[in-house]
Design a protein around this nucleic acid. Sequence first.
DNA 1: GCCAACGTTGGC
DNA 2: GCCAACGTTGGC
Length: 145
Amino acid sequence: MQYWLFKSEPGSWSWAMQKQKGAAGQQWDGVRNYQARNNMRAMAIGDRGFFYHSNEGLEIVGIVEVCALAHPDSTSDDPRWECVDLRALADMPKPVSMVAIKANPRLTDMVLVNNSRLSVQPVREAEWTEVCRMGGLDGATLGKL
DNA sequence: GCCAACGTTGGC
DNA sequence: GCCAACGTTGGC
């Protein structure tokens, strides 16, 4: 399993809206960046991701799961743009802020710290575990998701 | 609201 | 294929 981070401005697509979609999920549309698209193409069903609020909030607020492989983005006429579908899995019990991530020496290599503009990012397993720990999700809880 | 960083575009 | 100009993103 691979881990990812998805950024969204809560003003246009918030964690609350994502949760309202429930188990059916929602396509992660609107990505118009090759690197982000390529990351989505590399995803497998069941991959996990962090849901991050950019611009407002600046924190990881939830966990999502990839529930459909990359397919054409229905919001674009341009066939270059594809997206996966995501469904909300769990709230982050304690949202993990960008400030806290930057302050954690174990997370200095996170893409979020070094290339904050990339909207769909890979997350290393050690980073995933550490952020979950900071957010109040222990291994046992994660295993039940 | 500012502006640095980054990605994309297009003329050459 | 280089690179200047431009547009966008997103933290501050």
